[in-house]
């Protein structure tokens, strides 16, 4: 569904992504682990097109999309959430989801009608609000909901484009352990055919959702396999202990 071949990216002298090749099957839920600065977010930026790789390619549903701009990749079914919230602050939960749903439904540039009044858009908004547990807060403004709910909405906005592949950059970052657990239930309840790539800091929680695990270190894939294998991996333990001591 989503594949990268030998992706490479440097910022000046810093080699941030090194020869990364990944392959996600349809419906696969893969968690990316790695210490701070390992290049996880950079990999996402390369995948969605916010950065151009120095070399290598990105393939979506069997097609090479490396040359496509961000918006065209998104319309082909690649959606992402961000490590830092990118919500539209003055708007309500419903309007935030509606902005994304309108793009998917093709009403985002319509002049003759309000996109949020369209039945297709309302339908997506209702469904996604349910998926991210925000139905009771649908009319609340972003400023009126808790931080944890905002993280849920951040994922909701990405979901509202009805993607084939959903990339989530530390969806639970800054959220307490209690709520993180709920978040992972939420992810587990998403449609089984949705392909997911999730950056996650917390190993235990990662094992909750992952079908497969990729570990990045200094921009390099140092582990790629099943969670059971990851649990026993010495290398992973080294990196894990090396960088999570403070956590």
């Amino acid at each position: 569904m989503l594949e990268t071949r030998n992706l490479d990216k440097s910022f000046g002298a810093v080699h941030v992504t090194r020869d990364v090749s990944l392959k996600l099957e349809r419906g696969e839920r893969r968690v990316i682990l790695g210490p701070n600065g390992a290049g996880k977010t950079t990999l996402f930026n390369l995948l969605v097109g916010e950065l151009t790789p120095d070399s290598g390619s990105v393939h979506l549903a069997g097609e090479d999309v490396t040359a496509l701009p961000v918006s065209r990749r998104a319309r082909r079914g690649l959606s992402r959430s961000y490590q830092k919230n990118t919500l539209f602050d003055g708007l309500t939960v419903e309007e935030n989801l509606g902005l994304a749903a309108a793009v998917h439904a093709g009403h985002a540039t319509q002049l003759w009608s309000d996109s949020l009044a369209k039945p297709e858009v309302r339908e997506i908004v209702r469904e996604v609000a349910e998926q991210v547990n925000l139905v009771p807060h649908i009319h609340a403004r972003v400023s009126e909901i808790s931080y944890g709910m905002r993280r849920q909405l951040e994922v909701g906005v990405a979901l509202a484009t009805r993607p084939l592949v959903l990339l989530m950059d530390e969806p639970t970052s800054g959220v307490g352990p209690e709520m993180s657990k709920g978040f992972h239930d939420l992810l587990n309840n998403l449609p089984r055919d949705l392909t997911m790539l999730i950056i996650e800091h917390d190993m235990d929680l990662a094992f909750d959702v992952a079908d497969t695990i990729t570990v990045l270190n200094y921009g390099e894939v140092v582990f790629d396999g099943l969670p059971e294998a990851a649990r026993g991996s010495k290398l992973l333990k080294e990196i894990y202990l090396g960088s999570w001591e403070d956590a």
């Binding site: 969605v48 916010e50 918006s71 998104a74 959606s79 902005l99």
Partner: peptide, 8 residues
């Protein structure tokens, strides 16, 4: 940037 990432 966000709107672009949504496909707009």
């Amino acid at each position: 940037q966000r709107m672009r990432a949504l496909g707009l």
